[in-house]
Amino acid sequence: MNKKTSILHSNFLYTIIAILIGFIIGAIFLVWAGVSPMEAYFKILDSVISKPKNIITTLAYAAPVILTGLSVAFSFRTGVFNIGAEGQFVVGTLAAALIGIFVDVPAVIHIPLCIIAAAAAGALWSLVCGVMKVKRGIHEVLSFIMFNWIAYYLSNYVVNIEGVKKESGGEATKDLLDSARLIVDGNNCAIFIAVVLAVITWVIIEKTTLGYKLKAVGFNKFSAQYAGIDSGKSILTALAISGALAGIGGAVQVMGMGGRVAQFASQEGYGFEGITVALIGASNPLGVIFAGIFYGAMKFGGSKLTMIHAPSEIINIIMGCVVIFIAIAHVFKALFLSIGKKKEAN
């Protein structure tokens, strides 16, 4: 295979093409809204990279979606579909917040403690659905959807409990203690946790016997069983890890950005954004880092679009289109390869 055809075979190319098409379709909508696409896209870019402070904020936006993206990517690679990352994220937020508010220990202990609590909460939330799947054959998509909502109302309930609720003003919890915040010199450093976990996830999937086992069960449960792998246990392990990652996503959100948990008016969408991030990152943990940063940049930059009177929803439209064109990347691949072949023949 020569270099040119190997580029045509690489999935990366088609992700880039999908992103480009997403921006083109976004541009059409912007023109419809009476906004110059160039101006809007420049605004997004400018808000992200103009100041170091903004780059840091972008990365702060990226950290939680990288983690939910990892959660979903891990589930895709191990043959389950974690559509419940949303709920696991929420209970993770809650667990981290409660530990962050009520346990007063030095930061070196406090931060890991919050993260472990969030991971445990997320893992547990996911495991309950896993056990129902393995023991009773209940469709995980269904139970995940239910658990997303239970988490949502649970969080709203806890937020409003006397003693947890902030004393004055607003329906939110008290602030986390400073020792539980992921803030160094006023800068959010959640991204480091996200990147480290991405690398660890990559190692687990690609290099370990655990990853081998989980993938084998994910691809073909029956063969794995035949070969002596306990498929039920593997599915539960995979779901626990996936849930823990989403839970940690919730932790870094509240420990970094929020500082407290506010009452939700509607689902936050981090879990669903995680699906998009996982797809753009081709379910590869390292790809997810870049996909998450891209998403973070779009979210942060998009929020500045109102300054030029452009609807910030354009971001959702663009991201949705990107996902659609990733879904049909094989069509482009076949097209390009056949063109490539014809050229070679001539």
Binding site: Y212, A216, F219, N220, S223, A224
Partner: peptide
């Protein structure tokens, strides 16, 4: 169905 994980490489 029972003998192979088709997506895995021959080596795996």
């Amino acid at each position: 169905k029972h003998g192979l994980v088709l997506e895995f490489s021959v080596a795996d």
